[in-house]
Nucleic acid binder design. Structure first.
Lengths: 211, 211
DNA sequence: ACAAAAGTGTTGCAAGTACACCCATGC
DNA sequence: GCATGGGTGTACTTGCAACACTTTTGT
């Protein structure tokens, strides 16, 4: 039989859910309904259930509140300061998620621009900061930006999302060169119609499967 | 009072301790003294104690066995598959450590070349692989290689360590150019003496404090 | 003398950055 | 006709990769 002499910590998953709304990178925050930090803004989170994989906890934390299709999830790291929760020893495994264009999030909470976050309870500000930094740096060497897109899209739309995530404007020609060089997208053969401008080629992400 | 209805997992820290011996990047492994996986090679690890910061657990895991000065430690990520330990739900927060030149590790366990690891118990092979990949990639954009050095050293010595970590040879001139461009080291003004070759300038890492 | 490491430049290529104009469409 | 985004090329700079020889010391 397995015995373990030390008091066990509780383990939660805290989630930094990203989305781009109105050309701004935003994070989902929940008003905390109970002590401690009652009334404060916090990241959505939940305890890891018995026999539940961590990633599933992360999905549940988001979907409990409002069912979304499958979204990109990645573990950030864990935060385990003994005093991070005044109630008890609670270790948080932090994840971040990306909600793509067109998602409908109808759960509780509000979306905040990442550069105008309110004060957050617990150590959630630190978690959010780590997530933002990680997301931005992964733009440069992964295809993570495409997690914000869904279906087919124009290069103009992709660039707008990219700029929102990065928080700065990009040169159109250089952007297109780089997207092409990195082979992030493929043409669908179709064209967008119906804007006050010429129809644009529609693209989709290269490799619809896996990563 | 804080109540939490789900069974709590136990939380351990598992440690990937790196060192360079004989121009090879090596990892410290321990023969497991009890079930499960009795007799198998595993990473050193230990339970997180009550009110103990995770990083301190990581330090303790290494120093319990043999006291070393302070070594570089960084959290990798957490591994929480419900079946990763057959006894119970045990979530592992993985860290990696770097033991610098000249350390004397007298504790239990043995050092293995990273490209000749034996079979490991639990999911420790995955943890080790993640650590190796992280370490190698951080060579490129941090000064982490200097954690392998101690005191003053020649550029030749630094290059040898670097090649050991990376697992491949580097061009001497390009290496020196890059080290200079990235300002990783500063001259001490002194020179090494006593080898069958000209004395070499001695360097030390830039910024002895902080990172 | 020989073995061992120290030290030192140039060239080519690739990737990134700066920068401006005309075109097709909807209203 | 005008506002909106679509689409396109060149020049410069920077970082990375390839590549070889001379010098100093200890044995």
């Amino acid at each position: 039989m397995f015995t373990y002499e030390y008091p066990r910590p509780a383990v939660t998953v805290d989630l930094v859910a990203f989305a781009v709304h109105d050309s701004a990178l935003q994070v989902l925050l929940i008003r905390r309904p109970e002590d401690p930090f009652i009334g404060a803004w916090t990241l959505p989170g939940g305890f890891v259930h018995d026999r539940e994989p961590l990633e599933q906890t992360a999905v549940r934390v988001l979907s409990d509140k409002a069912d979304l299709g499958d979204v990109f999830m990645e573990q950030l790291r864990s935060f385990g300061d003994p005093d991070r929760d005044p109630r008890d020893r609670i270790i948080s495994v932090a994840y971040f998620a990306i909600l793509p264009e067109g998602h409908v999030y109808s759960g509780p909470g509000s979306w905040f621009d990442v550069d105008a976050l309110p004060e957050l309870g617990f150590d959630h500000r630190e978690i959010a900061d780590v997530a933002i930094e990680r997301l931005r740096s992964k733009l440069g060497y992964t295809d993570i930006a495409l997690e914000f897109m869904s279906g087919s899209f124009t290069l103009g739309e992709l660039q707008k999302k990219w700029e929102a995530v990065l928080g700065q404007a990009l040169d159109k020609r250089n952007f297109r060169k780089s997207v092409a060089a990195r082979k992030l997208v493929v043409e669908t053969g179709r064209k967008s119609g119906g804007g006050a401008h010429p129809p644009a080629k529609l693209y989709r992400r290269r490799s619809g499967f896996g990563r």
